[in-house]
Computed example of a mutant assay.
Amino acid sequence: MTRIPYKTALIIGAGVGISASLTRMLSGAGLKVALAARDTAKLEALTAQTGARAFAADAADPASMASLFPQVDEAIGEPEIVIYNASARAHGPIADVDPEAFRKSLSITAFGGFLAAQQAARRMIPKGSGAIFFTGASASVKGFALSSAFATGKFGLRGLAQSVARELGPKGVHVAHFVIDGAVESERRATPADSPDSFLSPDAIAQTYIDVLSQARSAWSLEVELRPWVEKF
């Protein structure tokens, strides 16, 4: 297995997809892992399997995020890896989208990323090391019809990642943004039998995160795009 130069990790917006694959890989590599989600009940099987610790948190609430990090610090040590995987949608025509639903989507998808990065930076800067990763989507680089809220949030998260990378990279903190450009396979959404490999495997995505974590600082990636071989650009 590729060597990961860190000992602790926090995944925010944890669930049963990409973050579950990451949890298994990071735990399997010997790291202590903390998972944050609004509903921790859905993480019970994963924590039992991996030994990861679960914490209830609202990614878009400054008080909740300010409380989460000290809890993680005490439970597993200050997280040397922070992965922001939370997002929300408000699908519909621009003339009809509920403003509060749009606000909520933007708050979770982008503002929460800022809150996570801020807490992570306060811990990583003094040490001169660490990694902050953001999970993006197709909507990070191309806005689709009926998806204005999600595109706004993901565009914002990408801009945040670029800005934070340029600020913290010279201080020893690796910041990267991952464009997940395509549908991700899950228990509820299997790859179509007549189109093999047309969905991204969450394990394959997680392996790419692991590979980027292992990069030498003389050749750090800022952005990685991942898509199935049949996906149109």
Rank of each mutant, 00 (worst) to 15 (best):
I108E: 02
S195Y: 03
A95Q: 14
G153W: 00
E78S: 15
S27A: 15
Q119A: 05
L22I: 01
A14C: 03
G77R: 07
S195E: 12
A165P: 10
L222C: 14
G113D: 03
L115I: 02
D197F: 15
R188F: 15
G51F: 14
I125L: 12
A95R: 13
V230F: 10
G15S: 05
R103K: 13
S201Q: 09
R24S: 09
S163I: 11
P192E: 02
T47G: 10
A204C: 09
A120F: 08
S163A: 15
G77T: 02
Q162L: 09
T152G: 10
I205N: 04
A121P: 05
G128A: 04
D197P: 04
S64R: 01
T40F: 00
L31F: 08
E223H: 12
D181F: 08
G17I: 00
Y84N: 01
T191H: 08
G136K: 13
S21I: 03
L68S: 09
S19Q: 10
G156I: 11
A86E: 01
A176P: 12
T152F: 15
S148D: 11
R38L: 04
S129D: 14
P93A: 07
R103Y: 12
V82H: 12
F199R: 08
L157C: 04
E167V: 05
L168C: 02
M25I: 05
S214G: 12
I94Q: 07
P192I: 04
M124I: 02
I125D: 07
V212E: 14
V16M: 14
H174D: 15
I83R: 05
E231T: 11
P126W: 05
Q119W: 06
A193M: 06
I205Y: 02
S221Q: 09
R188S: 15
F150I: 11
R89S: 15
S195I: 12
A216K: 14
W220H: 13
A36S: 09
G153M: 05
D203S: 15
A90Q: 01
G172L: 07
R122A: 10
A139V: 09
A216M: 10
L31N: 11
G77S: 02
A206I: 03
V175I: 11
L222F: 13
P5K: 05
E44R: 13
S27Y: 10
L106V: 09
K104M: 12
A86D: 00
F134Q: 06
G128E: 04
L35M: 11
Q162H: 04
A161P: 01
P192D: 07
A145H: 08
G153L: 02
A20P: 01
G113W: 03
V33H: 14
S214T: 11
K154G: 00
S201C: 12
R38G: 05
E167C: 03
S64C: 04
A216F: 07
I210F: 09
A183L: 10
G112K: 00
K142R: 08
P99T: 05
A90S: 03
A66W: 00
A59D: 00
G136R: 08
A54T: 01
S87A: 15
F133Y: 05
A54L: 06
A14D: 10
S214H: 11
A9Q: 13
E167W: 06
P192Q: 07
